[in-house]
Design a protein around this nucleic acid. Structure first.
Lengths: 211, 211
DNA sequence: GTAACTGTTGACAACATAGTCAGTAGATCT
DNA sequence: AGATCTACTGACTATGTTGTCAACAGTTAC
């Protein structure tokens, strides 16, 4: 009986890096930066853990690479979602829903809290959030000029706070939302979460009109 | 030369438990449940780590005990802060500030996110949050009857969402707030955080009047 | 005083994890 | 076919972490 030949798979360096980062990203979202285990990721990708060190040099470098890639895709998708805003009545609610969809898929919003809690600086997000504010402010001012009644110009700080509240509410909702809603006498079903977002949208919309 | 007698301090079991839990609570807030290290806590209290195991049985039991104690004090203080609501014009802003003070001192709000992220059920908070909703709703309805114009009765769901939004905003603000405000073109100083809360208070207040 | 109780400790075991290193084995080029 | 390159691996090291255990030492009761 011949020992079964243990075929060894050999990917291109690029493919291997991508596969490892995919697995690491999943663990990152679930367990946070400090919860990442090289052996676990290696098992997910069916390689030995020194292979990961071969491709990334160190655990720390892997985490950084994954963070950078993830942040990049999140901000790109959020900006895309915002750019699709058609000028409509309850546009705001839909924008919130789209932004929420981006942040909640695969629990991505969790990463922001993992980073903040563990005291890690998120990489290169300076540009992106400022762009969101700018886009939102442009929508506000342009909409104002289109409206029937001429209202006061919305202050930039107002828009900033609006964006901050939206980000805070959307991200924390995807983490604490379900639990909180049940504790308050409702349930944590997606439908209830959606109802809450609609309620929030109306609240913000009212704020937009009132000066 | 006589060897210096290494006096061994002996506390009552109760005192020892309290001291250990204090140190553990600090680490819990900083590093989360999974970040707690027996040796570190032992060093903080100047005992050896088997002493901790003697008093609590296991690391897990220590974490549970600390969590239970912390949740109890947080909910008690929040209810106390709510009960001090004097019926005044911008009472809501002050209630938010007091609630924020309770949640932000020593970074307590962080614990809620640590628990949610790590998938740990927070102990015995069922009663407390429902009580907050009830208290808030009573304030709303009683205030309505006192007002000059008779408005529609506020729906309970409205109050619930209001409480949820407040909790989400206040807790996430103390974690993501400073970072987010700087990314949006402001700064993360306590003064700016306070401005944001005041803005939020006005927003919620406007929502209260509008039906 | 001394005996019982128990808070406290050092030494050790068992396990997990990041990183090193010499060598193996696919893929590609000539 | 052979040489070269490098993705990949097993074995090992160093370190850190929870938990066990027998023994030590304050404190209290008699």
């Amino acid at each position: 009986m011949v020992a079964p030949k243990p075929t060894r798979r050999r990917r291109t360096a690029e493919d291997a890096r991508a596969a490892i980062m995919d697995a690491a990203e999943k663990r990152l979202i679930e367990a946070g930066p400090s919860g990442i285990r090289l052996q676990e990721i290696a098992a997910d990708v069916s390689v030995s853990h020194p292979t990961i060190l071969h491709h990334f040099g160190s655990r720390e470098a892997l985490v950084s690479a994954v963070l950078e890639r993830l942040m990049h895709t999140i901000y790109a998708e959020v900006l895309l979602a915002l750019s699709q805003s058609d000028d409509d009545e309850d546009e705001l609610v839909r924008v919130l829903d789209r932004a929420y969809a981006v942040l909640s898929t695969q629990g991505r919003a969790r990463v922001f809290y993992w980073l903040a809690l563990e005291g890690i600086e998120p990489p290169n997000d300076e540009v992106a959030l400022a762009a969101v504010v700018q886009a939102a402010h442009e929508i506000r001012t342009s909409r104002r000029s289109l409206g029937p009644t001429q209202t006061r110009a919305p202050s930039l700080d107002d828009t900033r706070f609006l964006v901050v509240l939206s980000v805070l509410a959307l991200t924390s909702q995807s983490i604490l939302g379900p639990h909180l809603l049940t504790r308050v006498g409702l349930d944590g079903e997606p439908k209830t979460l959606s109802r809450f977002r609609a309620w929030l949208g109306r609240l913000l919309h009212a704020q937009l009109g009132a000066h």
